[in-house]
Design a protein around this nucleic acid. Structure first.
Length: 310
DNA sequence: CCGGACTCCTGTGCGC
DNA sequence: TGCGCACAGGAGTCCG
């Protein structure tokens, strides 16, 4: 499930393949996965021309930028910016000339990339179609109107910013972490991973967290995401990077998808509950709901070290 | 305004 | 072996 680490790793694997390259042609197989931000000005172009231009036809890519879980493909000069959201099962794959995508179904957009010999492609594939592409008039508009609505980027979240946004809501802290306007980039996997690392129960009201707890949580989020990026992301089923490679972070998961298994810190049986319609796994010992004492000894070291497997 | 519930969608894995 | 069904969840929308 693509969250911040997967999108960042995708960015890193696609950048050397795409930066400086020109899109010669765009094939749109499914129009309905492309969304437009409300246009700030209209153009004289026809609809189809505007669509292809928005999808960067005849543009030279200069930059790939990530914010939260979103990836922006930025081209030369005063050109539109293409924003990619992977949703649950989205994939952005670079296919070198002569190669074939591992699967040919559910490919919604196909870009021809100028190459010698010709034949390099980029494809957007998304079976479940929770993902999509958003067209944006310019980088300035992307930053001022689209990304400005998101919370701070989770990879570099600072304690005082997290404490500030969590302090404004009585929602369960897990629900708040999933809200992209509170913090951008955390999804179901890394919310559970960060909470167990910080020793915080997922149902704690966000605004009840003490200063030291939000400090530990901010550290846990940054550490969890950094480690996952280094491992190439977490592949449960669908996620692959720009070269079609799976991530290796699944083996390091502490809580997510480990309900009923022993906690890696203390050995207690991990429980699962539902929060915000999302399966949530936590350790009843390391993440107490009511205790106001400093967290269990097990958490000591969890913010710097990988726990040994129990 | 806030927050919870519902909705979209398809592949997978389970029970019968 | 095959069928039907529950389940997975990011993010937009709706409603109390």
């Amino acid at each position: 499930m693509p969250e911040l680490p997967e999108v960042e790793h995708l960015r890193q694997t696609l950048a050397p393949r795409l930066i400086g390259r020109t899109i010669s042609r765009v094939h749109v197989k499914r129009r309905d996965i492309v969304r437009s931000l409300p246009a700030s000005h209209s153009t004289n172009h026809g609809r189809s021309t505007r669509l292809r231009r928005g999808l960067l036809e005849d543009c030279r890519i200069t930059q790939l930028r990530r914010y939260g879980k979103q990836l922006a493909i930025i081209a030369d000069g005063n050109t539109p910016v293409l924003v990619v959201q992977l949703g649950m099962t989205g994939q952005l794959l670079f296919i070198p000339a002569g190669d074939k995508p591992h699967r040919n179904d559910h490919i919604h957009i196909r870009w021809s990339v100028v190459s010698d010999p010709p034949g390099d492609h980029l494809v957007f594939r998304d079976p479940r179609r929770f993902g999509g592409l958003t067209l944006c008039d310019s980088l300035a508009e992307l930053e001022s109107r689209h990304w400005a609505n998101l919370g701070c980027d989770a990879l570099t979240i600072r304690h005082r910013d997290l404490h500030g946004t969590l302090g404004k809501t009585r929602r369960a802290v897990k629900a708040a972490l999933l809200d992209q306007q509170v913090i951008a980039g955390v999804g179901n996997i890394y919310a559970d991973e960060s909470l167990i690392r910080a020793g915080i129960h997922p149902l704690r009201p966000a605004s009840d967290l003490r200063f030291e707890e939000t400090r530990d949580l901010a550290r846990a989020i940054r550490l969890t995401l950094r480690r996952a990026i280094r491992a190439g992301g977490t592949t449960m089923r669908d996620y692959v990077d720009g070269n079609g490679q799976s991530g290796r972070n699944r083996a390091d998961l502490l809580a997510y998808a480990r309900g009923g298994k022993p906690c890696r810190f203390c050995g207690s049986v991990l429980q699962h509950i539902v929060v915000s319609q999302r399966t949530t796994t936590f350790c009843p010992n390391c993440q107490p709901l009511y205790s106001s004492t400093v967290c269990p000894q097990a958490r000591k070291g969890s913010l710097t070290e990988l726990p040994s497997t129990v």
